[in-house]
Every structure is written in structure tokens, then in C-alpha cells.
Design a protein around this nucleic acid. Structure first.
Ligand code: FES
Ligand code: FES
Lengths: 145, 145
DNA sequence: TTATAAAAGGATATTAATATCTTTTTATAA
DNA sequence: TTATAAAAAGATATTAATATCCTTTTATAA
């Protein structure tokens, strides 16, 4: 499971993308409201994302968050990596200090399939692809109730 | 990813099983040492497991931990359920308040495959099967280094 | 130039997970 | 019966994740 912070980050980025497509640059307040996350905490997460250049920001009047040229096809992996590191992609599912094909834990063979499956999703899914499925109406950004 | 507590629990149970097969009932100290977990914390985890009847225990001289009749084929699911609940099996991977096939988040279709894959492992793998693969020498309980 | 709007930064608070320590209960061996 | 070994229980400590609040910097509009 991803951490709450990572989930907030992903949803925030998706919302920024959706607004950017409407030529808008949402601010912290709007983003937090739309993704249903605490405002001050969302601000911290957006800070982390901009500090790591996953997202652009503009201070002052008319400011807000937006994607720049080279930020258009961020993968989930990029976001997870910045928010919580990539332990989830290489950790041993049984809790051993490392995962090793040649000296496996009893869960290794089966666990690796799942872990690699998630890695594949993370590496191929992009913020813009997720956003687009929402834009098209095929998926939702939040629950009505 | 499972919590550290859950990992300790699984490894502890596997070690108890291995020792039980040798007609021994290990105590907290031996278990903690073998699974490389803090002793007092391991004691707490064993308490949770015995309280929930996943494991038997005997107090006093010659006491220790062991599996009873109906505890022989514990699944990973049973352990995870007791240690951290089963959110990981039904939670939305995108962080929505619930996962819903008919009103999916943009990650749903792909995420559910991975999540269900893990559920399948958890429901089918048992402590005794894991232990047996160690007994046979096909897998290890811990890293030498 | 000044007031205002916005993000950035820093400090602090709260909660949950991990970890340790001490006392109590229970069983057994001497 | 007493000393000892062991788990159970309870209290406390530490660390990391989540969350809030206040101040500073920056940009823009009036
Ligand atoms: S060694 Fe445990 S998952 Fe690979
Ligand atoms: S709705 Fe998000 S994983 Fe199902």
C-alpha cells in the first residue's frame, strides 16, 4: 500500500493536470479541496513535488501550480520515488534484509510476481494518462459520497 | 507492503512451526533471536497472536509457543488480518474512500489485478507451507549477511 | 509604491507504529 | 513448599507519519 502522502501527491498532480488542460493554475486551497486532503498538509506535499521538479509553481498574485514542458509525462514511479522512496519495488515481502533471487525467502517466487506487476504499473502509468481517463469520464477523482 | 509487525509475526510463526516439527516449543528469547527482531517487541506480537488463537502458548517452566490441532494450516491472510486488518485487500490504490468496480478511480483496472494477486497469495499460502520450504532447504528464514 | 494574493519555509502538534521496561501470573522442578 | 522459568499484562519511550500554524518571500494589480 502506498502512504497517504503519496496518494495525496498523485491525486494532487492529477487535479493540477486537469485544471492545466483548462488553462488554469490551481492554488493550494483549490487542490486540497478537490482531492479532499487537509490544506496545510497538501501545501507541504506540493512543496516536495516542486522542490523535486515534478511540478512547476508560481508565487504571488495569479500564481499556482502547473506542469512545465518536461513534466508532461510523469510516471507514478517518479511520484512514488520522490514521496516515499522505492522500497516497495525491491523489498522482501517476508521481511528479510534484502530480496535475492538466488537465496529466496519462502514467499519470494510468488511475491515477486505481484511486486513486479505493481512496478510495471508504476513505470507505465502517467499522471496525464490517469488524468485523461478522468477527463473522458471513464474514472473519477473522488467519491461523491 | 506489509507492516514490520506483520512481517515479524509471519517469521515468528514460521520459526515456531519449524521448532515444533523438532518437538520443541521455543520461547520469546529464542524466537526473537532467530527472526532477528527485538525481543520485547516480539513478545508483544506473540501475545497478539496467542490472544487471537493463531498460536498456543504455555506459561511457566518448560513453557513456550506451539501450534495446536486447529492451528496447523494458518494462512498468511489470517496473520495479516489479525496484525493489521485487511485494508490492503480492499483499499483503493488511488486513495479514494472506497474501491468500486462501477465507479472506478483511474488506477482501478490495473491495480485490482495486483491487489487480487496478493490476496490470492495470502489466502493460499500457509505458515506450514512456508515453513516446509525452509525445512526442505528451498528457502531461508533469514539472511546470513 | 502599496496592498494583496500566493507559494515557500520553519516550527510545532498530534497520532500511529515501533520498541523497551517492569510487574504479575502461572507452571514446573527441586 | 520454595525457587525458578516462562508468558501475560501494563506502563512508558522513541520514532516516523500525518497534520497544523505562523512567518517570510515573491509577484502582481491597483
Ligand atoms: S527474498 Fe523475500 S521476496 Fe525475494
Ligand atoms: S476504485 Fe481505486 S482501486 Fe478501485
Amino acid at each position: 500500500m502506498l502512504s497517504k502522502s503519496t496518494e495525496y501527491a498523485i491525486r494532487a498532480l492529477v487535479f493540477v493536470q486537469l485544471r492545466n488542460w483548462e488553462q488554469k493554475r490551481p492554488g493550494v486551497d483549490e487542490i486540497a479541496r478537490e482531492i479532499e486532503a487537509p490544506e496545510a498538509y497538501t501545501a507541504k506535499i506540493l512543496q516536495i513535488l516542486t522542490k523535486h521538479k515534478l511540478l512547476g509553481s508560481a508565487k504571488g498574485r495569479g500564481g499556482g501550480f502547473f506542469f512545465g514542458e518536461n513534466q508532461s509525462s510523469l510516471t507514478l514511479y517518479d511520484v512514488i520515488h520522490v514521496m516515499e522512496g522505492d522500497a516497495c519495488f525491491h523489498k522482501c515481502g517476508f521481511g528479510l534484509k534484502s530480496c535475492n533471487d538466488n537465496n529466496p525467502c519462502p514467499l519470494h517466487d510468488k511475491y515477486v510476481v505481484v511486486r513486479d506487476g505493481f512496478f510495471e504499473i508504476a513505470k507505465t502509468e502517467t499522471i496525464s494518462a490517469l488524468s485523461d481517463s478522468i477527463r473522458r469520464g471513464d474514472a473519477v477523482l473522488n467519491r461523491i459520497v
